[in-house]
């Protein structure tokens, strides 16, 4: 639908939202972010990288 027949200013901002922006509004977004952060955190803590952060006394 072309913007010529719509009310100017009312439709346009809604259309600017990309797919990512729309996804960010859904409840699935914080779940996905935090679950992936948790998995990344576990992987980091279990990885040899964490072992290297321990001081060699």
């Amino acid at each position: 639908m072309s913007a010529r027949f719509g009310i100017p200013g009312a439709q346009a901002p809604a259309k600017k939202q990309s797919k990512l922006e729309q996804f960010r509004q859904t409840p699935a977004y914080p779940i996905l972010v935090n679950v992936s952060l948790f998995i990344a955190g576990v992987a980091f803590i279990q990885s040899p990288l964490m072992d290297m952060m321990a001081p060699q006394l």
Binding site: F38, I45, M50, D51, A54, P55
Partner: peptide, 11 residues
């Protein structure tokens, strides 16, 4: 991680 190092994660 080591006898004197602990790491924790919470979601």
């Amino acid at each position: 991680v080591a006898p004197n190092v602990e790491a924790g994660l919470e979601t």
